[in-house]
Computed example of a mutant assay.
Amino acid sequence: MEFLVIALVLLVGFGVFRYFRQKNVVTILTEDQFREGYRKAQLIDVREPQEFKNGHILGARNIPVTQMKQRLIEIRKDKPVYLYCANGTRAARAAQLLHKKGYEDINQLKGGFKKWNGKVKQG
């Protein structure tokens, strides 16, 4: 029983740690906030190419998180970066990677593409 309590405390602690670490790396934006700034930023869809072809936010570039390390040269450090994926998980990973590489103005769409109600380009 004592082991379960310790494991639960560690699990909750790790979740809190990840939440605050992520909060310092990326700004999570509502759809309205995202829409306000993404035209002046680098809008990057971090989903895989097939997902991107099936529909994406108008004006987005596709740099899958799986290719991001190799394609960092395509992303400027002096302009805001707006990221999104299907639901937020991959965008959070991409934000961590960019942060480690010295990017500072990193923003993410809350809820990802699945929650987006704005203009979309279909395949």
Rank of each mutant, 00 (worst) to 15 (best):
E74D: 13
M1D: 01
V65C: 02
G37I: 09
F3W: 09
Y82A: 02
K101T: 11
E2L: 14
K79Q: 08
N87E: 10
H56T: 04
L8R: 04
K100N: 09
Y82W: 02
L10E: 10
N54I: 03
H99K: 10
G88C: 08
Q96S: 09
K53F: 07
K110R: 14
G15Y: 13
T30I: 10
I28K: 08
G37A: 13
F52K: 01
L98S: 03
R93P: 05
I63N: 01
V25L: 11
I44A: 07
N87M: 12
I28F: 05
I73Q: 10
M1T: 00
F52V: 04
L4G: 04
D105F: 00
G111F: 05
P64V: 10
N54M: 12
K119W: 11
I6W: 08
I28G: 02
I73P: 01
N62L: 04
V9Q: 12
D105G: 00
K114N: 09
F52T: 04
N87P: 00
D105A: 01
A7Y: 11
A91N: 08
A60M: 07
I106M: 01
A95M: 03
Q96V: 09
L4Q: 03
I44R: 03
F52P: 03
L10V: 14
M68A: 05
L98D: 03
H56I: 08
K23V: 15
G112Q: 06
H99T: 01
V46T: 05
V25A: 06
H99C: 05
R76L: 11
H99G: 03
P49D: 02
Q96P: 05
Q96I: 09
A92Y: 06
T30F: 13
Y82L: 03
V120E: 06
V46P: 00
A41N: 04
